[in-house]
Simulated scan of single mutants.
Amino acid sequence: MSQFWRDRSVFVTGGTGLLGSWLVAELVNRGARVTALIRDGVPQSRLYTENWHHQINIVRGCIE
């Protein structure tokens, strides 16, 4: 696997959404330092059910 993402800072919007949660998981697996913007806490999101939220920085808010 490529080392491109290792130790890179990445900002993901919609971290609890379908695409965002999968993206967070993949980036963490590749060694990126992930910060995710989360508007609403969604406990059934993959971000929480698979405990990815413990491995990233979370920023609560919205882009408006």
Rank of each mutant, 00 (worst) to 15 (best):
43 P>N: 04
3 Q>N: 15
51 N>K: 14
13 T>C: 05
38 I>H: 01
35 T>N: 02
58 I>H: 02
50 E>K: 12
59 V>A: 07
30 R>G: 06
51 N>D: 14
6 R>W: 06
4 F>T: 15
45 S>C: 06
61 G>M: 11
17 G>I: 02
4 F>A: 12
54 H>M: 08
48 Y>S: 04
28 V>W: 07
18 L>A: 08
50 E>T: 14
37 L>I: 03
47 L>R: 06
37 L>D: 01
29 N>V: 08
56 I>Q: 01
8 R>F: 03
20 G>C: 01
17 G>S: 02
58 I>A: 02
43 P>R: 03
30 R>L: 08
11 F>A: 06
25 A>K: 15
24 V>F: 05
54 H>V: 02
53 H>K: 01
3 Q>D: 15
36 A>W: 03
52 W>C: 04
2 S>H: 10
25 A>S: 11
32 A>I: 10
18 L>Y: 12
59 V>L: 12
63 I>F: 13
56 I>M: 04
60 R>D: 06
31 G>L: 14
19 L>V: 15
12 V>R: 00
38 I>Q: 02
31 G>A: 08
53 H>N: 04
39 R>E: 01
22 W>A: 14
23 L>V: 15
38 I>M: 11
63 I>V: 12
48 Y>P: 06
6 R>E: 11
12 V>Y: 00
25 A>M: 13
60 R>N: 05
21 S>M: 11
56 I>F: 01
25 A>T: 09
47 L>G: 07
60 R>C: 03
25 A>Y: 14
35 T>K: 09
34 V>I: 04
12 V>D: 00
58 I>L: 13
38 I>N: 00
42 V>P: 01
61 G>H: 05
59 V>H: 08
34 V>H: 06
12 V>C: 01
46 R>D: 07
52 W>Q: 06
62 C>F: 14
1 M>P: 09
8 R>N: 05
12 V>M: 00
28 V>F: 12
28 V>L: 12
47 L>Q: 07
12 V>F: 00
49 T>N: 02
12 V>I: 05
13 T>L: 03
44 Q>L: 07
19 L>S: 03
14 G>M: 02
25 A>Q: 15
51 N>R: 14
37 L>W: 02
64 E>K: 14
47 L>S: 10
32 A>N: 07
39 R>W: 10
60 R>L: 15
63 I>N: 11
2 S>I: 03
43 P>C: 04
37 L>N: 02
36 A>D: 00
7 D>M: 10
44 Q>K: 10
25 A>W: 05
29 N>Y: 04
27 L>V: 10
64 E>L: 09
38 I>P: 01
12 V>Q: 00
7 D>T: 13
61 G>R: 10
46 R>I: 13
25 A>H: 15
5 W>P: 10
5 W>Q: 03
10 V>P: 03
34 V>N: 03
50 E>Q: 11
45 S>I: 09
55 Q>S: 15
8 R>K: 14
17 G>D: 01
5 W>E: 08
50 E>H: 13
52 W>V: 04
6 R>G: 02
64 E>H: 13
57 N>M: 00
40 D>M: 06
60 R>G: 06
